[in-house]
Design a protein around this nucleic acid. Structure first.
Lengths: 192, 192
DNA sequence: GCTGGACCATACGCATGAGTATGTAGGCCT
DNA sequence: AGGCCTACATACTCATGCGTATGGTCCAGC
């Protein structure tokens, strides 16, 4: 019998390594990103890795940029396409709340803010998202400074929620309780 | 000239090591907690360390428990001593906002949630704080479930703010802007 | 004034993980 | 059919950081 680990023995590309790196980051954190571990997981050895990348740092960089690029564009454009500005905020909240998978990388990177490489990426992504939120709040009727502060508050709540639940697993909240929380959040953060 | 790092050459105790560890964690993160580095910083060598602690893990554990114990008791008791329940929330918010130093360890531990040792400590501390917040919201007039959700939201905003500012240094916010943000937060999160 | 224990120095062993050097199998082009 | 380039294997070097072994120094107390 053939006991080889993975039957998929096709050749790998740099993108394959970057995707694998992002998956590993998503469920084990940036600290677990080791080239030999990744190689084992892909069914090859380090020899392959160092053909595609000059260093481990380069892989991290490439993976982060890849993640940053194909980001949250579809969500943003879909929300902006909604005709009624007041309806956008609740829709955005519910959407983000129920698609937790895409936020796993972001949550993992939140725990890796001591690595100098991830800081600028997270800064850019967070900045863009907050500007997006600020615009929505303005279109919902808030004056400029209020909209900015409300966006800060909302995004902070989002980030904190990721930490407390994903990472810390804190409230061990049930599904119904979670929905109630989201609706509460909509009521208190959305302008009446 | 004497160029030795620290002139204090008294003997050290386990508590000295724990305090030094917490300081190092506060400004360089848990990942930077290495015994030789700590020893250099204290003007001694590893030989000293391994007399006081069996392992590096033991030091981390002791430091975390020390931090957990001498926690935020004074703030909590002072807030609870206030006669008017409605006045407690704004006071708590302003207080926390302007005493950022004590939150540096918490912020550092937030980035270290991949270390199995810090998770339970952070879970306990966060849980206690959220229960405290929930009580305040109830005393301010919110029904039980509303109070719980509002506490979750508030604490998430706190955690997220620490990440976005301390760690990420994101908005590069000015002092006046920050005060305005705090007041905005009070207006939108405090029951009218 | 001697001794035992607290506190620390020095010099190792050892595991892990990054990076390098070099050899090699298979597809593609001519 | 021969050559070559891509993708990978194998076998190392090297740095870092934990932990250990052992010996030294200072001070308390009989």
């Amino acid at each position: 019998m053939n006991v080889s680990a993975k039957p998929e023995r096709t050749r790998l590309s740099a993108e394959d390594w970057e995707d694998a790196a992002l998956r590993l980051i998503a469920d084990q954190g940036v600290g677990a990103l080791a080239v030999e571990a990744l190689a084992r997981q892909l069914g090859v050895t380090k020899g392959s890795f160092y053909w595609h990348f000059r260093t481990r740092e380069a892989l991290l960089q490439a993976a982060l940029e890849r993640w940053e690029q194909y980001g949250e564009k579809e969500v943003i454009s879909q929300i902006e396409a909604m005709p009624d500005p007041r309806a956008r905020l609740p829709e955005l909240f519910r959407r983000v709340a129920h698609e937790l998978a895409p936020h796993r990388v972001y949550a993992a990177l939140l725990k890796a803010l001591d690595h100098p490489q991830v800081v600028p990426v997270m800064a850019r992504v967070s900045q863009r998202r907050m500007e997006f939120l600020t615009n929505i709040y303005r279109e919902a009727g808030l004056p400029a400074d209020e909209a900015l502060n409300r966006a800060r508050l909302t995004y902070a709540a989002y980030v904190g929620f990721l930490q407390l639940n994903f990472t810390l697993g804190l409230p061990r909240i049930s599904h119904e309780e979670f929905d109630a929380y989201v609706e509460h959040m909509i009521r208190t953060l959305t302008p009446a």
